[in-house]
Design a protein around this nucleic acid. Structure first.
Lengths: 157, 157
DNA sequence: ATACCTGCAAATGTTTTGCGACTAA
DNA sequence: TTAGTCGCAAAACATTTGCAGGTAT
């Protein structure tokens, strides 16, 4: 707690995400390093889904000496502290997305241009719960991905 | 076609799956080898989801000289001809399941015991279509996985 | 006869780990 | 001061590919 307050004053923490991270670091006796700061910045600059490689590229632009190992390790850290969510789509690539203050959503994924449209459909969520109850199952979380073709790509075809 | 008929008589094709495979092989000038026969048999003996490694183990019990490369290649072949479906769950492992005469289904996946419950919910499928229309998207296929705890594991806890 | 197929070894691509040097607190 | 961190190189892991010899048709 003290650390968090010090950081807030000294380093002028300007994002809630940075607060979440520093709080987690403090609670777990971990350190807030230059690398983690740069990677957080790059992470906050991302939109939608990105791979470790994508993030590494962003990071290298700011500080080329930061290695890929650190990016992988830091993404795990972000996942643990609730800033990032790890996910895997059909093509098998591991992607990350923002998790903090980002609501759950499902995806429409275009098989041609690769665009991901984020969607939420409360009606479907309700039916999922109903389905789970029927099987005496308790849902913790879910994923739903609809693969097909987006408007643009349908027209082009 | 001729090949299929010959096979039916000579090799006594007893499964529809074997017919599907030999038909596909014939249409594409591919060969029905001992390895493919053994791997098909092992494949037909599987239930639910399995990895390439799982299948290799089964195959090795019948014929230890069959290599992993052949299993990988044959699983691709089965996927192409419609016998198998390739899928990836949250843990990132590539799994296969039967596809021929197996309806599409979604999954309830227990995070404790790992059990997969196969489910279908036409109401949800309808809403998925509605959702897609709203975004001018045409769905080709989808996946939905609900992660949580099954009845048994909820009671144990 | 001649595509096609096989198993091996090697390559691939992604992610993890061991380690000595370094650094935040 | 010292536990945690870094970047590198190497390992690990799952999957694919090149190739020379073997096989189905």
């Amino acid at each position: 707690m003290k650390l968090k307050i010090i950081f807030k004053r000294v380093l002028d923490l300007d994002s809630k995400e940075e607060q979440v991270l520093t709080e987690y670091l403090y609670q777990n006796d971990l350190k807030y390093t230059e690398q983690r700061r740069v990677i957080l910045e790059a992470f906050l600059d991302t939109e939608c889904h990105f791979t470790a490689e994508d993030l590494l590229a962003k990071v290298k632009m700011v500080n080329p000496s930061i290695g890929y190992t650190t990016v992988y390790r830091t993404l795990k850290l972000f996942t643990e502290c609730g800033l990032a969510r790890e996910m895997r789509f059909e093509d098998g690539v591991t992607c990350y997305e923002h998790r903090f203050e980002h609501d759950h959503h499902d995806h429409l994924i275009c098989k041609k241009c690769g665009r991901h449209i984020e969607v939420i459909e409360p009606e479907i969520e309700k039916l999922q719960e109903k389905l789970a109850r029927k099987h005496h199952f308790r849902i913790e979380h879910h994923r739903m991905e609809l693969y097909g073709f987006c408007e643009k790509c349908r027209i082009k075809q």
